[in-house]
Amino acid sequence: MSRYKVAVQALPAQTFSARLGGNTLTIELQWMARLEVFRVNILSALGVTLTAGRILLPGVDLLAGLYPPPQISYGSLTLEGDQSTPDNLGVANSLVWSDD
């Protein structure tokens, strides 16, 4: 079983590519000030949207329940630690990928 942290910065908005197992995904994080949460969009290496508008919350798998179910197993991507804010993202919490 593989498991590792995905590097994120304490910023209100960021877009980055992450190698998750055998797949490279683009992850977009955008702070929603009114709701005080991060909105997450995840795209495949080809730019196909896998999920959009998910909320970054501790313990929630951002890759769960993709529809239609992909032919590729993307694993899980979960925030561990404190609820994220622009000041503590990647400091008091971690974005963790696992192939389980």
Rank of each mutant, 00 (worst) to 15 (best):
Ser17Ile: 00
Tyr67Val: 12
Tyr67Leu: 13
Met1Gln: 10
Ala92His: 07
Leu89Ser: 08
Pro69Met: 06
Asn23Glu: 15
Trp97Thr: 03
Leu35Ser: 11
Arg54Trp: 03
Asn93Cys: 09
Arg19Val: 13
Leu77Glu: 07
Ala64Cys: 05
Leu46Thr: 15
Gly90Leu: 06
Ser2Gly: 06
Leu89Ala: 09
Arg54Cys: 09
Arg39His: 10
Asn88Cys: 08
Gly59Ile: 05
Ser94Cys: 09
Phe16Arg: 05
Glu28Tyr: 01
Ile27His: 02
Arg34Trp: 03
Leu79Lys: 02
Ile27Thr: 04
Glu80Ser: 11
Ala45Ser: 15
Ser98Cys: 10
Leu79Arg: 02
Thr49Tyr: 01
Asp99Ala: 13
Leu79Glu: 03
Pro69Leu: 08
Val60Lys: 11
Val48Ala: 13
Ser76Glu: 12
Ser98Ala: 15
Gln30Val: 14
Leu77Cys: 09
Gln14Gly: 11
Gly21Arg: 00
Glu80Ile: 10
Tyr4Asp: 12
Ala33Cys: 04
Gln71Asn: 12
Gln71Ala: 15
Pro68Glu: 10
Thr51Gly: 09
Leu25Lys: 01
Leu50Gly: 10
Gln71Trp: 02
Leu66Cys: 08
Ser98His: 03
Met1Ile: 09
Ser17Lys: 12
Pro69His: 01
Gly21Met: 06
Phe16Val: 05
Val60Arg: 12
Ala7Leu: 12
Asn93Thr: 04
Leu29Thr: 02
Pro58Phe: 00
Ala10Leu: 04
Asn23Tyr: 13
Leu35Asn: 08
Val96Cys: 05
Leu57Asp: 08
Gly65Asp: 09
Thr85Glu: 07
Ala10His: 02
Ser76Leu: 07
Leu66Thr: 05
Glu28Pro: 00
Leu25Ser: 04
Ser76Ile: 06
Ser73Trp: 03
Gln9Arg: 15
Phe38His: 04
Ala64Met: 06
Ala64Glu: 13
Gly21Gln: 03
Pro86His: 02
Gln83Pro: 08
Thr24Ser: 12
Val60Phe: 02
Phe16Leu: 13
Gly53Cys: 07
